[in-house]
Nucleic acid binder design. Structure first.
Lengths: 286, 286
DNA sequence: GCATTAATTAAAACTTTCTGAATTTAAACT
DNA sequence: AGTTTAAATTCAGAAAGTTTTAATTAATGC
């Protein structure tokens, strides 16, 4: 069905005559007449009583007019959504690396509501690698991942924030060197397969020799709970530690060659979506 | 805008591939492809990311799909309203002669809600003559009027109900003959210009000679109030009298050659609306 | 009842949409 | 990496649908 015919019908209903409606719509009277005729044919009903001149709407015609108005309203909304007003528009599927989802998501959504009122979002969490694969597959539009040493050439990366790593040790072990800690406590390691996990491994490998005493846990909160109970110590991004720290925990900033993890927004490398990626990343930085 | 293109878009979004969508919609792949291309051109946006095969929806494309769904829903509602299921459908503008509106309208609307759920109504009141003129003008679709002695040849009439006339006199004058009443009281006449008014005039003329003592009032309720207060007597359709009667009033049925008023549904004489008129009149009779 | 205005009809000009073949392209498979 | 395969695009011509001009018919106003 041609929405133009519905627009014509509306105009006729408004002005009450074919001629003036045709003038308002910049079309020939005969074109308008035929348009109405074919609309009637398509719907299989009489919209006008043509024993009057100008023709008058039938009762059905009047009610079709109301329906037409709602079709046109929906169409206008659709067109409005296409307006290129340099705002983020559409439904974006975003991925978050686990630690990032907890901390970045709320601020992101608040910022989005304000600065991208015409966009909506679907959020999934996963490991950096998985998320990047989903991006490449077109199953995600953007993902917050930990910057890797070997970036995917098909993706582009925008730095969102940088977080230095810190040790969390039970309060009673405060002040001990990593070597001594390692002797007395287990090292609680966050998923070594994940982006951040690899970073931790790399940093910690020369210090923590005895692999036997390493415990792998997939939840930051669970690790921190273990530290609080004196079971072991850990190395994690400082904001993650602070999030769960209390007086049972001593936070020791890493000093040696200041290693840090970068959270980046990864998107498909695609010239036509550059502006959208930029707008998206602004929602995280702001 | 062609709603067909929106339907195509929806189908593609649903099945995730152009070929299968084309199969489901019984069209060539190339036709479908071109349809999407011209839709994108019309909207001025990219609906698909064609670096994937099959093409994937862009974020905007996804949100346009949702808008498309609401356009299509509205269109379906429009088409459903055109279904010829032998029910009254559309918006009818009805006229009621004053006395009829008060008594017939509530039952009519109740009946309509039940038997014509897809119809809606606009109601106006007026004198029979005015209403008939509006029918002829196409400003009303139907009117309940008092059957006249000279029916308009352009209108057709359906009998809705027949009401006999009755006198209402103040209780203390009960039993007096019309002549005696006329001597002692004023005759309170309902609008002589109206359909029922003419009927009353015709009936009452030979009885009530002295025109001076006739009072014309345009409201049945006001007339009845006057009768209650002993100011005069009146002749009106019995149901109207009963509506306002109390113990201060004596109702005297007219016996002499049993005159009655017929309430009829008047509509434009028009072959194509015969069925609708029939359905409409059923709503009154039922 | 005739003149006027408004809507319909018909045929030609035009625009859009569709088809089928050829071509390109992304993904899957050696 | 190169080849195959399936899927989407492009192209030219055919078909369908719309609009226009001009002629015709019908309703309204004087």
């Amino acid at each position: 069905m041609q929405t133009r015919a519905l627009k014509t019908l509306s105009e006729i209903a408004k002005v009450g005559s074919f001629v003036t409606a045709a003038q308002h719509l910049n079309m020939t009277l005969s074109a308008l007449s035929m348009q109405m005729k074919s609309l009637e044919k398509e719907l299989g009903v009489a919209l006008f009583d043509r024993s009057f001149r100008p023709p008058k709407l039938t009762p059905l015609g009047r009610s079709i007019c109301e329906h037409a108005a709602s079709v046109l309203t929906a169409e206008d909304a659709l067109k409005a959504a296409c307006d290129p007003n340099d705002q983020l528009t559409g439904r974006y599927r975003l991925g978050f690396v686990m630690t990032a989802s907890v901390r970045l998501l709320p601020d992101f959504l608040i910022s989005a509501r304000q600065h991208a009122p015409h966009a909506s979002f679907g959020v999934a969490t996963g490991l950096s690698e998985t998320l990047e694969a989903q991006l490449v597959n077109g199953d995600l539009d953007g993902a917050i991942v930990t910057a890797s040493t070997k970036p995917d050439p098909r993706l582009s990366y925008h730095l969102i924030c940088e977080e230095s790593l810190a040790f969390a040790v039970p309060e009673e072990y405060r002040g001990l060197s990593p070597d001594r800690l390692n002797e007395q406590l287990q090292f609680l390691q966050f998923l070594p397969d994940s982006g951040i996990g690899k970073l931790i491994t790399k940093y910690v490998e020369p210090i923590i020799s005895r692999r036997k005493r390493v415990l792998v846990i997939d939840s930051v909160e669970a690790i921190m709970e273990c530290v609080k109970n004196g079971i072991g110590f850990t190395l994690l991004p400082e904001p993650d530690i602070r999030r769960y720290a209390d007086n049972r925990i001593a936070v020791i900033k890493s000093q040696r060659n200041e290693i840090s993890r970068q959270l980046v927004l990864a998107t498909l490398r695609n010239a036509s979506t550059n502006r959208q990626t930029e707008l998206l990343s602004e929602l995280f930085i702001n």
